[in-house]
Design a protein around this nucleic acid. Structure first.
Lengths: 232, 232
DNA sequence: CGCGGCTTTGATGTTCATCAAGTAAAGTGG
DNA sequence: CCACTTTACTTGATGAACATCAAAGCCGCG
C-alpha cells in the first residue's frame, strides 16, 4: 500500500498552518490538529479519485501532484501540475458532492487531511477564514484557467515551450531540472500526441535551445524558448 | 453612449436579491440598495474591460454576455457565454486588482453595480454571505473549466455540436433559437477558424441534423448531435 | 444604389495524429 | 545477477484534420 498515516500531530511546526488557517483562533486550530491526518503517497499513486464523494478537505504539504480529468471515452486530460501552496487539491470541493478531478502524486508527496464538515462549519461562522479561502480559490482557478487558455491557443512547439518555462520558472524553479512527467503525461498536459511532444523536444535540442538527457532537461536559450511560447 | 444609469432603486422587486444577498441582514441590504447602480448595455458594448482596475462588483441582471480574454498578439478567446445567474462577471475579482477578462453584452443587457469595498467589508464580517459567495464562485469556475476542457478535447464538428447543445439546453433553453454570436465569435469560442465553423454547420444542415436560416438554428436530431458532441 | 462587413464554398498547403518499426530503459522472475 | 518481458522513448512515413487564401454571394445601412 502506498499510503501511510503518520502518527504525530505536528501543527506547531507546520509552515502551512499560518497560510491556511491564519484566521482561525487557537481553539479552532487545536480542533483541526486533533482530528487532522497526514498521509504519504509514493510517486504515481492517486490521492483523490474523480467521482468519489468529497468527505475530506485535502491540501498538499510536500511534493508535486498532477490534476487530471477523466473523460467518458477513457482518455484523460492533465489540467495542471501543482506545488504545495497551490491549493489545487481543494478545487470544486465547495460546489460539488463528488470530485470532478483526480489528484495524483508525480513525486513522493505528503498531504494533510481534515474532515470536510469541520471546514464547512468554520466556513459558515468565521468570515475572515472564509474570505481568505475565497481569495485563494479565486486565485487558483484564475491561474488554471489562464494556463488552460494559453495552452489552447498555442500550437505544438509553443505548448511545449510554455510548459518547459512553467517547470523552470514555477514548478521546479531551476533552469536545469528533472521532468516529473513522462512524455505521455506531457502530451496529456499539452493536449497533443506523445510523438509530437518528442518531436518538439528533439527540435529544441537540435537548435540548442535545450539539452535533454532522459528526463533531465536544461534550458540553454530561455529567450528563444520564451519567444516560441509567446508566438508559437 | 451605450450605457444608461437607471434612476430608481428597485431592490424590493429584484428576483436576484435573494440569490446574491440572502445572507445579508436588512440593514446590509438597505446599504447595498442605497449605493448600487444599475446600468444598461446595448448589444456589442463592453461591460468590463480586461486590464482595468476592479472597483466594482458587477452582476448580470438581464441579458446575455460573453466572457473573453485578450491575448498579447491581438487575438482573443471566448471563454464562455453567461446568463444572469451565472455569476461569471465576478470571476477573479477577489484575487486580482485588475480584470483578467472582458465582459461584453451579446444581447441588450442590464447589470447591477455595487462598490467593491462594500462587498469586501461584508465578506470579511458576514461568514454566511462569504460562504455562499465561495460556493457560487467555486461552481462557476468549475463549470467554466469543465467546458473549456471539453472544447479542448473535441475536434471541430464535436466542438460545434457541443456549443449548439449548450445554447439549446442551457443558454437559450429552446431547440430552435437565434444564435447570439456571429460565426467569427463561434470560432473564437471553439478555438478554430471561422470557415471551419461554417463547414461544420453546413454539414450538419446537409445531414438534416439542424436547420439554418441566418442566425436562426433549429436542432432536428438532437441525439445525433449529442453523439457527435461526445465522441467527435 | 453601392459600400463594407458577414457568410459561404472551393482550392491549397501546413500542422498534426496515427501507424509502423526500432531502440533504450526499467521492471520481473528464475 | 542475468535473461526476459514490458514499458517508455524515438524517428520516419502517411493520411486526416485543419488553417489559410481566394473569390463570390448576401445582407444591412447610409
Amino acid at each position: 500500500m502506498s499510503e501511510v498515516i503518520l502518527p504525530h500531530c505536528q501543527c506547531e511546526n507546520c509552515q502551512l498552518r499560518d497560510l491556511f488557517f491564519k484566521h482561525l483562533d487557537k481553539g479552532e486550530v487545536t480542533r483541526i490538529c486533533t482530528i487532522r491526518k497526514e498521509r504519504s503517497f509514493t510517486e504515481g499513486s492517486t490521492i483523490i479519485i474523480q467521482g468519489e464523494t468529497i468527505k475530506e478537505f485535502v491540501y498538499l504539504k510536500d511534493g508535486l501532484v498532477k490534476l487530471v480529468h477523466q473523460n467518458s471515452d477513457g482518455s484523460q486530460q492533465l489540467i495542471t501540475v501543482a506545488r504545495p501552496l497551490d491549493f489545487v487539491s481543494v478545487m470544486s470541493v465547495f460546489s460539488s458532492v463528488t470530485y470532478n478531478y483526480s489528484v495524483v502524486a508525480i513525486v513522493p508527496s505528503v498531504v494533510c487531511v481534515i474532515d470536510m464538515q469541520l471546514i464547512k462549519s468554520f466556513g459558515k461562522t468565521n468570515a475572515k477564514f472564509t474570505f481568505d479561502l475565497l481569495q485563494r480559490m479565486s486565485l487558483t482557478n484564475d491561474n488554471i484557467l489562464l494556463e488552460s487558455l494559453e495552452l489552447k491557443r498555442l500550437q505544438v512547439k509553443g505548448k511545449v515551450a510554455f510548459l518547459l518555462i512553467r517547470f523552470a520558472d514555477y514548478i521546479i524553479q531551476k533552469d536545469e531540472f528533472e521532468l516529473p512527467l513522462s512524455r505521455k503525461e506531457l502530451a496529456e498536459y499539452a493536449g497533443v500526441s506523445t510523438e509530437n511532444i518528442i518531436r518538439a523536444l528533439s527540435e529544441f535540442r537540435k537548435e540548442k535551445i535545450i539539452s535533454i538527457s532522459g528526463k533531465t532537461i536544461e534550458i540553454r536559450d530561455k529567450e528563444r524558448l520564451a519567444m516560441i511560447a509567446r508566438l508559437g
